[in-house]
């Protein structure tokens, strides 16, 4: 009877991308424990979704560079973490050309989300400017 839990993935040996990805998903996971849970708590426990109109975001939530930077950092961490996780799942269940196609689709979607999220966090006017 093995004592090892099957929850985690054994650290890949040697060099190259696989051990890098193994560490990256754990480091981004630690960051997300703080960033994602803080983000969720602020927007569901302190504020209520009913009041979070577009105006609320420009006038209040994203009216400070700190919270824009916080949410942008969250975006970066979640893109790396979630797409590395989806990559693991695709590689577990899909092989051959379908695997390549799915991974290309995933990486394209990651790039699109990176661009969309960065555009909105950088270009949305600060409160009072409109």
């Amino acid at each position: 009877m093995a004592l090892w839990s099957r929850s985690g993935r054994v650290r890949p040996q040697g060099g190259g991308f696989e051990p890098f990805a193994w560490y990256l998903i754990r480091i981004t996971g630690l960051a997300l424990f703080v960033l994602a849970l803080t983000h969720f708590s602020i927007l569901h426990f302190i504020f209520d979704p009913a009041e979070q109109t577009a105006e609320f975001i420009t006038q209040e939530r994203w009216n400070q560079v700190f919270w824009r930077g916080f949410d942008w950092l969250l975006l970066m961490m979640v893109i790396f973490h979630s797409f590395l996780g989806m990559r693991t799942i695709v590689r577990d269940y899909v092989r051959g050309g379908a695997r390549t196609a799915l991974l290309m689709g995933l990486y394209s979607l990651a790039a699109i989300l990176f661009v969309l999220g960065t555009i909105v966090v950088m270009t949305l006017p600060m409160g009072g400017e409109r």
Binding site: A54, I57, F83, M86, L109, L113, L116, I119, L124
Partner: peptide, 15 residues
């Protein structure tokens, strides 16, 4: 992951 995809798109709409 699925919610993050939706959420980045909905926040993009704020702008």
């Amino acid at each position: 992951w699925a919610f993050v995809v939706l959420h980045v798109i909905d926040i993009y709409l704020v702008g």
